[in-house]
C-alpha cells in the first residue's frame, strides 16, 4: 500500500518533468540518485538530518548534482529534501519511475551490474528481457560493485540473477 503523500509527490514530480519535456532524462537521473542515496549512509544521514537546516541540505544537493544532472532533476530533489521528505526520496522516485513506465506502457526493469553497460548492451539487454518476460521494459541500470560480476535484473516480482555474488554465495552454502 503506497503512502498517499509519496504517491502525491511522485505524481507532482512526474507532471513537472513531463511539462518540462525532460521526463526520460529526469526519470533516469532521479533513479540513479535514489540508488546512490540508498547505498550511501553519509549522504542519507546528511539529507535526512532535521538538525541540519534545509538550506544547507539543499546546498549539498547543489554541490552533488550541479552541472552533472539537469536543472530540473536538481531542483526536484532539492524541493523534496527541502520539504523534509528526504527519507522518502527513493520511494517517491520509484513511484515516479513506475508512473513514467506505465505512461509508456512499460514495466520497470532494474538492472544491477558491477560495471557500467554500454548503450548497445542496454539495448540488447532490454530486448532480451522483453523477449523473456513478454513485457516492454524501461531499463534502469544501477552500478553496484557488490554484484562483483554479471547482472541481476528485477522486473516486477521476477528476478533474473546471473551475478557472480549469487554464485559465490551458492558455492559458500554448499561448502
Amino acid at each position: 500500500m503506497t503512502d498517499p503523500r509519496i504517491e502525491g509527490y511522485a505524481r507532482g514530480l512526474f507532471e513537472i518533468a513531463r511539462a518540462e519535456g525532460t521526463l526520460d532524462e529526469v526519470e533516469d537521473e532521479l533513479f540513479r540518485f535514489a540508488r546512490s542515496f540508498e547505498s550511501s549512509d553519509a549522504l542519507r544521514s546528511a539529507l535526512t538530518d532535521e538538525m541540519i537546516p534545509a538550506t544547507k541540505r539543499q546546498a549539498i544537493i547543489e554541490d552533488l548534482l550541479g552541472g552533472k544532472a539537469t536543472a530540473t532533476t536538481t531542483q526536484l530533489v532539492s524541493m523534496v529534501v527541502g520539504f523534509g521528505r528526504g527519507r522518502d526520496l527513493p520511494a517517491i522516485v520509484d513511484r515516479l519511475v513506475a508512473r513514467a513506465s506505465n505512461a509508456k506502457q512499460q514495466e520497470v526493469a532494474e538492472v544491477r551490474c558491477a560495471v557500467a553497460l554500454t548503450a548497445d548492451q542496454q539495448a540488447r539487454l532490454a530486448a532480451a528481457i522483453t523477449q523473456a518476460t513478454g513485457k516492454q521494459v524501461n531499463l534502469k541500470v544501477v552500478v553496484d560493485p557488490s554484484v562483483l560480476g554479471g547482472i541481476v535484473a528485477t522486473v516486477g516480482d521476477t528476478v533474473i540473477d546471473g551475478s557472480v555474488r549469487t554464485r559465490i554465495d551458492q558455492l559458500k552454502s554448499r561448502l
Partner: peptide, 17 residues
C-alpha cells in the same frame, strides 16, 4: 571477464524466451 559475463547474461535471458 566482466564483459563476457554481461554478454553471457544477455544471451541467456534472450534464449530463455
Amino acid at each position: 571477464t566482466q564483459q563476457e559475463l554481461i554478454e553471457n547474461f544477455i544471451s541467456r535471458v534472450g534464449a530463455s524466451a
